[in-house]
Amino acid sequence: MFASFFEYDFLFKSLLAVLFGSITAGIAGSYIVAKKMVFLSGGITHSSFGGIGIAYFIGMSPVLGAACFGVASALGIQYMASKQKVSEDSAIGFLWAFGMALGIIFVYLTPGYTPDLMSYLFGSILTIHNTDLIALAILALILLFFFMRYYRLILYVAFDEGYARTFSSRVDLFKYLLIILVSLVIVLNIRIAGVVLVLSLLTIPPNIALLFTGNFAKMIIISIIAGFIGMLSGFVASWYLNIPTGATIIFTLVLLWVISRIVTRRRWE
């Protein structure tokens, strides 16, 4: 009985992770895909690995380390790009490799065995901690609130920043808030898909959505649903086939995209 409760508990936790993961990735992913910020998000993802490495070394929570690095690099890239001293894609390329290098060096320097490392690289939904799950749930709530309350503003800032400045003096504030939220989504979903795969978790569902709609709000909703279906089926498949979850989830998401592409094909011809 104890064993079955235990099994029930971590399956339930994984299910919650899939739910909150698809909500957060669906919302943040729609924003970065529509605004063409995927490369920037890749930079945030990989530089956050530097935070994971340093956190291991000094013995703090890897997720917290990744969050600090992710947010700092996001703000750094935006700031550098807005001041036009460095081109944005160069700044991203720089932080991308620098974060990975830092991470590798500090993990190497950390004495003893680092059992969780693989789970940060490739994800491990089954071993997700309660604190990570709670953080993911809170982030999902914040995103839902933020995007419902400020939907029009977010849409118009993302679509035409210059015009948005004619009706709002807080365009930069909102841009920075959004990029901070995006980095937190990336970092907290690293537990699910890992540094190597998390970007697909954010980008595949919105691209599935774009096959069905040209409306930003519908794009977000379809992304969340597609993400949930893809992640859940990937999770179940990996469980029965006993293969790595993160990779399986990406596989099922791609499969879902292919199916959607075939289903919607007639519309585009």
């Binding site: 029009r152 118009y156 679509f159 035409d160 948005a164 009706f167 040209g214 409306n215 930003f216 794009m219």
Partner: peptide, 14 residues
């Protein structure tokens, strides 16, 4: 960008 003509026009009311 995934936005319709009408939604673009509505941004004039922001």
């Amino acid at each position: 960008f995934p936005v319709s003509v009408k939604d673009v026009v509505l941004s004039g009311l922001m």
